[in-house]
Design a binder for these strands. Structure first.
Lengths: 149, 149
DNA sequence: ATTACAAACCTATAATTATTCATTGTGAAA
DNA sequence: TTTCACAATGAATAATTATAGGTTTGTAAT
């Protein structure tokens, strides 16, 4: 599960000083992701992670500077590939995703910056999105469902 | 000449998409810097350069994200090690540096953010610093000369 | 000038990372 | 369901990068 794993990678490097890809592989295994260094190398490229100096003088991986943008494509792709169903009630939209992917998808939604969205919260495989008004919900839902086709 | 070379490195990566350290070695040689990859690896660490994705999907070296600061120490060190003499006239301070190091030293001065400095311009081994008023020049000169002791 | 020391550097190599090529999974179309 | 096409991955390895250890070079003190 690629996106779920990449999400976990972000998690890990935010909480650990990861010096090498091998180390990252080891940490991922502890979380149940069984991958090889080759895959991590590719993940790192995709996530645009970067090897920087930690304050201790060692190298560590961090999220990249992201100077040039069009990662937007990436988010749309995540969106398409992780979202399972979209439902709603009142001004709340409930999005179901593949397990472990809610965070990634929610970040995608945030970044894609849909109108009338007040905020969102993501669990493991569910996102709640709060719209500013119930009357705007159906058009949002339409846009979501259009996008995942 | 370490700092001069590192200055050149910054120059090069700002004007070229440098994919590997070996490539950087080659480009440096063209500019008369004869070094090995090992030294470049250390320079890159010091300069906190970072291998990121270029828009073409290839890797390239860029200046780092610099999340955590205290590079200030580094600037002070450059300052100490490259500045030769300090003189002044009116509201202009003239700083002489080791050859090729004026840029690095000027950047250090900029970053260290001295008061009453209006601006500066650097050549190869000379920096002109413009103070806001002649009356503030001598105290600035004192601080500079203190620092290089 | 000579010694002592440290910085800068190189050579060689260890360590790490990226990629090639093969395989397996996965979804869509027939 | 079978087939096709392609995405994702792993194994092996090529390519790249970091570092250990030793040498040279500059510098300051004697």
């Amino acid at each position: 599960m690629r996106y779920s794993r990449q999400n976990k990678i972000l998690d890990i490097i935010n909480t650990h000083e990861v010096e090498t890809q091998e180390r990252l592989v080891a940490l991922l295994r502890k979380s149940g992701y069984k991958v090889t260094q080759a895959t991590i190398s590719r993940d790192i490229k995709e996530l645009q992670l970067v090897k920087t100096l930690s304050s201790s003088g060692k190298y560590k991986y961090t999220v990249g500077a992201s100077v040039d943008q069009p990662i937007s494509d990436r988010y749309i792709k995540i969106f398409k590939e992780t979202i399972q169903t979209v439902a709603y009630s009142g001004n709340i939209i409930v999005v179901k995703t593949l397990s472990g992917c809610a965070n990634a998808a929610a970040e995608a939604i945030d970044t894609l910056n849909f109108p009338n969205v007040v905020g969102s919260i993501a669990g493991d495989n569910t996102i709640f999105i709060v719209a500013n008004d119930p009357s705007n919900v159906s058009s949002l839902v339409n846009r979501f469902t259009e996008m995942i086709k």
